[in-house]
C-alpha cells in the first residue's frame, strides 16, 4: 500500500476516473492552469487538457448549472468549489435543480454529478470561509452527502461518488489535505457509499465522528484509555446520506453511551439527526443522555483563541465522554 496525503489520494481518484470514463471532467475555479487552489487537481490539466479539466470564471451558480445540464445530457461532471462556502451561491442549482431533477422528471433524467471541495473551518479564515454545510445539504432528498476522514476513504469514496448516478455532495476538509494514510493501490479500489467504518474498536463508549473530528476523536480515545481505562469506539459514518445507522446503533448497543463530535453548528446538525435515530432505534440500550460536541453557535471568529474556542477539540470530546460515562 502506498502512503498518500488526502490531497494526493483525491488527485489519484480524479485521475483514475478521468482515464476510466471519457464522460468524466473536472470543472471549477483555478482547477486547470493554476493546478487547483488547494492543489487537489495538480497536474491534471497538463495531462488531460482543456476538455477534461476546465477553468471557469468566478461564477459558481453558472458553472454549477452547466454541470447539472451536462449531467442531464449524459456527462459525469466533477464540480469543484474552491470552498463549500461559495456553494451557497450555487445552492439554487444544487438544491432546486440537481436534487430534484430525477423526481420531477418522473425518473427520466438522472444527474450524475459530484460537487466537491473543502468544507468547514481552515486556519483563521474567519466567518465567511469556515462553514460546515453537511447538515444544510443533507436536509434535501435527492442528494448524497459524503465526508471522508482518511486518505484511503478520500480516494475510495470519491471514485464511488463519481461513478454514482446521483448528485453527490463530497465534503473535504482543508485542515486535513496534508494528512497521510495508507491507500490500497489499483484502479479498482473503491469504497461503497453508505457504509460506516469503525475507526477504533471499544466497549465502553461510542464516539460518532466525521471528517475533521475523526482524528480528534481518536486522540481523545487514546487519552481516555490511558487515564481512565475506558475503552472508546470511534465510528466514522463516512457517508452522511445515506447514513449507515445500523453500524452506529450496533456500536451503541455494545457500549450504551454515545458522543457525537462534529464540526458543524450545533442547532439542527447531523449530530442532532443521529441523536434522534439512535434514540428511536436504541433507546433501551442507552445508559446516559447522548452528548454532542459541535461548533459554537456563532459565525467563526478570526482570533486564534476564539476560533479554537468555537471548534470541537480533543479536550471537549474527552469531557463529553466523561460525562456520558459518569466519570
Amino acid at each position: 500500500m502506498a502512503v498518500l496525503t488526502i490531497r494526493d489520494a483525491l488527485n489519484e481518484a480524479l485521475r483514475e476516473e478521468i482515464l476510466r470514463d471519457e464522460n468524466v471532467f473536472v470543472m471549477g475555479e483555478e482547477v486547470a492552469e493554476y493546478d487547483g487552489a488547494y492543489k487537489v487537481t495538480r497536474g491534471l490539466w497538463k495531462e488531460f487538457g482543456d476538455k477534461r479539466v476546465v477553468d471557469t470564471p468566478i461564477t459558481e451558480l453558472g458553472f454549477a448549472a452547466v454541470g447539472v445540464g451536462a449531467a442531464m445530457a449524459g456527462l459525469r461532471p466533477v464540480i469543484e468549489f474552491m470552498t463549500w462556502n461559495f456553494s451557497i451561491l450555487a445552492s439554487d442549482q444544487i438544491i432546486n435543480h440537481a436534487a430534484k431533477m430525477l423526481y420531477m422528471s418522473g425518473g427520466q433524467f438522472k444527474v450524475p454529478i459530484v460537487f466537491r471541495g473543502p468544507n468547514g473551518s481552515a486556519f483563521q479564515v474567519s466567518s465567511q470561509h469556515s462553514q460546515a454545510l453537511e447538515a444544510f445539504y443533507a436536509n434535501f432528498p435527492g442528494l448524497k452527502v459524503v465526508m471522508p476522514s482518511t486518505a484511503a476513504d478520500a480516494k475510495g469514496l470519491l471514485k464511488s461518488s463519481i461513478r454514482d448516478d446521483n448528485p453527490v455532495i463530497f465534503l473535504e476538509q482543508e485542515r486535513m489535505y496534508g494528512l497521510k494514510g495508507e491507500v490500497p493501490e489499483g484502479d479498482d479500489f473503491i469504497i461503497p457509499l453508505g457504509l460506516a467504518d469503525i475507526k477504533r474498536e471499544g466497549t465502553d463508549c461510542t464516539i460518532v465522528a466525521r471528517s475533521m473530528t475523526v482524528p480528534l476523536a481518536l486522540q481523545a480515545a487514546e487519552k481516555i484509555q490511558a487515564e481512565f481505562d475506558v475503552s472508546v469506539e470511534v465510528v466514522d459514518p463516512r457517508t452522511i446520506k445515506p447514513l449507515d445507522i445500523d453500524t452506529i446503533v450496533g456500536s451503541v448497543q455494545k457500549t450504551n453511551r454515545l458522543v457525537i463530535a462534529e464540526e458543524s453548528h450545533e442547532f439542527a446538525s447531523v449530530g442532532a439527526e443521529i441523536t434522534y435515530q439512535v434514540m428511536d432505534r436504541a433507546f433501551d440500550h442507552l445508559d446516559a443522555p447522548i452528548k454532542r460536541v459541535s461548533t459554537a453557535e456563532t459565525p467563526m471568529p478570526y482570533a486564534k483563541n476564539l476560533e479554537a474556542a468555537a471548534l470541537p477539540s480533543v479536550e471537549k470530546i474527552i469531557a463529553a465522554v466523561k460525562d456520558v460515562c459518569y466519570l
Binding site: 450504551n256 433507546f283 433501551d284 440500550h285 442507552l286 445508559d287 446516559a288
Partner: peptide
C-alpha cells in the same frame, strides 16, 4: 430515575 439500559 433510571437510564433506559439500566431499566431494561
Amino acid at each position: 430515575i433510571v437510564s433506559p439500559i439500566a431499566a431494561r
